[in-house]
Nucleic acid binder design. Structure first.
Lengths: 250, 250
DNA sequence: CGAGTTATGGTCACGGTGACCTGAACGGAG
DNA sequence: CTCCGTTCAGGTCACCGTGACCATAACTCG
């Protein structure tokens, strides 16, 4: 329709970034309890954390930013997100979903840049493997420094999506291993939603949802009645993980 | 990180497309009742329709496709969507929200193309102004021909989003004028959700939600008790219309 | 005026939820 | 070995939103 759109549009840069969420202890410790092993069970309240990388190039050199990079010609958007994740943080997320495409004209001071942003959930034991260093560190999601570009806005939006989706979808297990106790699962909800939940009511809701089933095993070693282990059945759809997700039939 | 990403990525084309939804009579008539005027009230069941444009260039020349085009260097993504809408269908949507970024490697046979897709809701009186022709026509959203590229997938996803969001958000009024009767509002829900709703229960829910208020006016002329007119209060947030939407405080 | 139609208001049974209580099953202290 | 503190696990109960349904109101048209 316009005169010279194809030629001009070719110079818009296309990048991907990812907001990676993991649960860690409030003091920053990597949340010892991997998949509910016999460990003495960290019961300190967990909070939401995310890894950031320090920019080593202009513009905004030195500032913390979301991991990301340009999209290659021969990779999909999600593929580009996974590649950048592996390259910068060595993470292979349990859950990965597109969040939003940010494309304001002046969001990057250099050239015109459109970023397709993904958000990811990783298990604590995975998160612990992130090689920290001068240029990669974990930050509490609710108390971030001033980030590069519009990344503060992006993280806030991703955090809102995480908390909203946690209330109506079954994504909590992406923070846990294959087997988990109800207390651990409840801990995930409490960490994300930032409010205590009644253990008995939580149990009733989870059991009636059909999303989990008992494995038969229990966890011994605690100074109390041994809790049963559960796993996700997969019966409950992960609602709206994108257009390619099989939808619940009407 | 990679070797030549910036240079290669520069040649990925960035486009926007929009799925435009409007309600029309099942036979395709433009849904006479504009903003609940004195007209004799079309009470034929409405269904969801969308306008498509015929491609006049290769690739996929001749096929029907979503209205859209390339993003210019000096316009935002939403701005590009609005411009393309105005250019191809002369529409200024009441509601416009980003849907998803589609970026599979082979979704366009020609060159690598990433499309940021928006979805829009327009009022019937607006929709009636769309200049139809050989290359612009309305189609029922649930019975589409084979479209160009991956546009069938896109429309299906947009339709799923519309129906899902209709159940928990207050977007129905985007299909109506400033003032409307509860029957008209209920008709929107019934058309989108494809199921009849109890008039009395619907009234109760709408009134208790605080989303609407009576204007004081009524509609006379029907062969029955005159219904009150309502308007949206704006108190109820349009949930999740993107990162820039003010969020409900915790 | 009566018939037909929709608007509007009310009742009632049911299911899910939050608040709360009680017993079960462990480890540890004495 | 017993008592105790803890969490697990199962249950009760009041409340509220919902769907199904009934009744009356208020208009037009024949």
């Amino acid at each position: 329709m316009s005169n010279s759109d194809a030629a001009r549009a070719a110079s818009i840069g296309l990048a991907v970034s990812t907001v990676i969420f993991a649960l860690r202890d409030a003091d920053g410790a990597p949340r010892a309890t991997p998949p509910s092993a016999g460990g003495q069970g960290t019961d300190a309240p967990a909070t939401v954390w995310l890894p950031l990388v320090r920019r080593i190039r202009e513009p905004q050199c030195g500032r913390w930013a979301l991991p990301g990079g340009m999209v290659e010609l021969d990779e999909s958007l999600e593929g580009a997100a996974r590649r950048n994740l592996a390259e910068t943080t060595e993470l292979q997320p349990t859950y990965l979903e597109q969040l939003y495409a940010f494309g304001d004209v002046n969001r990057s001071p250099d050239r015109r840049l459109v970023s397709v942003v993904y958000w990811a959930l990783v298990r604590p034991d995975e998160a612990a493997q992130v090689t920290l260093g001068e240029n990669v560190q974990w930050f509490p999601a609710d108390d971030l420094p001033e980030l590069a570009f519009d990344h503060n806005l992006i993280v806030d939006y991703a955090l809102w999506r995480l908390r909203t989706k946690m209330e109506y979808s079954a994504i909590a297990h992406a923070f846990l291993g294959d087997e988990f106790t109800l207390a651990e699962l409840r801990g995930v909800y409490e960490a994300v939603l930032q409010k205590p939940l009644d253990p008995a009511n939580f149990r009733r809701q989870m059991e009636s949802s059909g999303a989990i089933e008992a494995t038969g095993g229990v966890v011994t070693g605690g100074r109390h009645r041994p809790p049963k282990l559960y796993r996700y059945t997969g019966d409950v759809q992960l609602v709206d993980a994108g257009p390619l997700t099989p939808r619940i039939p009407a």
